[in-house]
Amino acid sequence: MTTRTRIDWNNVVQDVVDMRGEDHTALIPILQDIQRSHGHVPREAQNAIAIALDVSQARVAEVISFYSFLTEEPQGQYIFRLCQTISCEMDGKDEVASALERALGIAFGETSEDGLFSLEYTNCIGMCDQPPAMLVNDDAFGGLTPQSVQDIVADYRRKGEER
């Protein structure tokens, strides 16, 4: 994921483009693939995508800047996205937020130094019947409490360290 070894982004991009195609409609799937496999879409990759799809670099970058699940900056292996919208807000979001910050050792908007975790707020994730709720990568968790959050974080920490 966020390994510090040197990545040949041209190769990374070429592999994804080979699979997704060079059509403009493939741009977002390509960005999603790279985001998923590498935790971000850095400038070098954006540059290579622009050239492969024959679009401007500005076009690639403006698309990334639009969507909250695409980032230029590296993100952690596990991204904790706590819902900040009204039903969660009304039902204990703040306590869970503090518990998450404590358990992960990072504040909202930060990525842990070991590259394991990112913590951010997100808007409504469609879990309003189970507030407060969050996503951790592709997993949804509802009915969170400051206690349950600790267990969830511990699970991911274990998973992350096993890898």
């Binding site: 400038r43 540059n47 401007s56 670099q57 500005a58 970058a61 403006e62």
Partner: peptide, 20 residues
Amino acid sequence: SVGALGVFARGPEAHISTFA
């Protein structure tokens, strides 16, 4: 057909800029 400029971010933070 040059594409030097784009719109970045969204909402009140949206702005016109260049790549990076």
